[in-house]
Nucleic acid binder design. Structure first.
Lengths: 123, 123
DNA sequence: CTCCTTGTGTCAACCGATTGATACAAGGTC
DNA sequence: GACCTTGTATCAATCGGTTGACACAAGGAG
């Protein structure tokens, strides 16, 4: 099972790049461990409403970065060796980004925490 | 004196958006205080190697967000008041985005909250 | 008022990203 | 071997961002 990947339509960043960054996070943090298989091109493209070529570009760039290995018929899998430039700090990076935005909006820490708890999906 | 603004040529994110995000950071963090003047369009465009229209778009979006006020002949300055009406919904938007990233990384709510508290600037 | 500054608007042109379709190549399964 | 899956490659077409140039509008300073 692959985590829910999503695209922000309001973000001018091209979809192939949004996708790439999410995979970098997932691989770097170990959510997608070495050997884990990424979704087939057509399946992921269908789920996200993208063209096959767009997802293919994401996979191509991930492979160029050495994070992934693609084989025809065999799918795309996370590389065995782990080049971790930002493995652990992934969550902290996003936390910092959220904190910055919250402060920009005039919120204090507790307001930010409350908003976070409110936004957390049930489960 | 305006902080060093830089563009990452390797980042597929359009320049006007890279610029916009940097100003959001600078304003939100107080580096650019209320009333502070942003560089003139032509000057900033010249320094960054951009067309005037590209920088103009950044300023236009900042103004639409209420962070900045542009006047012909008078330049563009940081707004006196922090945008209060959009604060609530905007905070929720960022909280949701952070929550999603955190869950993507396999973190639970408490881990996300801890990371947030850790990332919150002192003061 | 005059002149300079500065933001705004428009235009044609180029480039990169995306789409949707099609065809092809290579691994996996039977 | 045949067959399905999956990644790769190409194509024309569309869309958005960017450029460079130019004209215009409005505030500031003398």
């Amino acid at each position: 099972m692959t985590p829910a990947l999503r695209l922000d339509a309001d973000d001018p960043t091209p979809p192939y790049e949004q996708l790439r960054r999410q995979f970098v996070d997932l691989i770097g943090s170990g959510v997608l461990p070495p050997g884990e298989r990424l979704p087939p091109l057509r399946q992921l493209a269908g789920d996200l409403g993208l063209a096959v070529g767009t997802v293919a570009r994401t996979y191509r760039e991930l492979e160029a970065a050495g994070l992934v290995r693609s084989r025809r018929g065999g799918g795309t899998r996370v590389t065995r060796d782990v080049p971790p430039p930002e493995a652990g700090p992934a969550l902290d990076r996003h936390a910092t980004a959220y904190a910055r935005q919250a402060r920009l909006l005039g919120a204090d820490l507790e307001a930010a925490v409350t908003a976070l708890r409110r936004s957390w999906p049930a489960g």
